[in-house]
Design a protein around this nucleic acid. Sequence first.
DNA 1: GTATCCAAAATTGGCGCCAATTTAGGATAC
DNA 2: GTATCCTAAATTGGCGCCAATTTTGGATAC
Lengths: 211, 211
Amino acid sequence: MADVVMDSKHEPVDARDVTDLVLQEILAGVLLPGTWLKQIDLERRYKCTRPEVRRALDRLAQKRLVEHVPNRGYHVYEPDGRRAREVSEIRVILETAVADTIVENASAADIAALKTLAAHFDLMVLNGTMLELYEANLAFHRQLLVLGGNQELVDLITEIRQRTSSAPVSQWRTRARVERSGREHHLMVEAIEKKEAETLKELVRQHILQS
Amino acid sequence: MADVVMDSKHEPVDARDVTDLVLQEILAGVLLPGTWLKQIDLERRYKCTRPEVRRALDRLAQKRLVEHVPNRGYHVYEPDGRRAREVSEIRVILETAVADTIVENASAADIAALKTLAAHFDLMVLNGTMLELYEANLAFHRQLLVLGGNQELVDLITEIRQRTSSAPVSQWRTRARVERSGREHHLMVEAIEKKEAETLKELVRQHILQS
DNA sequence: GTATCCAAAATTGGCGCCAATTTAGGATAC
DNA sequence: GTATCCTAAATTGGCGCCAATTTTGGATAC
């Protein structure tokens, strides 16, 4: 019910399963930064074949979630402060840029959908795993961006978010921080309702930068 | 001398060769949109093994430059008007956003470097292949972005530029258009010299949108 | 007791074969 | 003459083996 949120592509469904499995384990913090991803381990862990593992690792290396060292293997990327900051900066630029369009285009139904997603996030704060929380947050922001009317932008941001979120756990260290995120989501929806684009921009800006 | 411009990554150098080879052929317009990329053909054409071809195709599919149809193969993506427009929009947002920083940070040496690259582009307009022209243009824009001080942004834009440039030939259809691009490059450098950020933004905006 | 060197075990990664699916061509029936 | 079915060729893609490189553990020398 929650795992079908992904994309609507007719992509290689074949081996993507393994890729996503490893991806989720990294995002969930099970596979910590620096961990060496041995092919035999993954092979056994996910009950798949060697070529499947290798393709998954290659894809993750392309996404720059793991690093490939020739003849040594693949290991989860160490968190890079600079990169994280730069990605946040990019997100601020892009997400504030579409704020005007969002405020303009948002229908009553859109706002209702956002409220549902914001509420769902709150629910996951109380009783949900770290991954579910991460996905609830992602779903809210995706829906927000969809209203910007640029599908490519939605996909792009979804993509770059993964790049530095090697340890999403570390981002939401404190409970207070998470709860504040929840409140900010509601504030954003309010700003949209009141058609206050500038307020929305400032909210988005702060929301992104303090992670 | 011109082919070392790429990135400074310590990436899998092993099979990337093949990936880049196919990539360049697509960018150069040799492999037209819709063309089916048969594994045997590529294997012979680039004198490489089957697994290498397959990895290259998988990577290009990830980059969404080719589409994978299960049990049918891979074919070059058809140009998508909507996506092209959306990518341009994203580029305008990002490249104008860093204009302020560029104007602030640009040293005399930086400006000189830009002038050299702009001149090199002009040279390629006169006597250079389509691919060389493409790369000269890319080099100029990369150098411009580097001054923005966000490395991640530089890489990101380089990446998304490739997504829709299935047929770069079609972008620079007329000679007049190309020559105008060359002149605009010089105007951008001038704006930076005069520290006119707003002028630069408008130039960048128009430069990107009319392609 | 510590450092160095050597050997064995483990891991990566290149390569090719074969089964499954699809496509094209020809033969037959209408 | 045309449409349909069936067979054969071709293409994709899954899977496993083996060589090359690296790492680890132990033995030996200092």
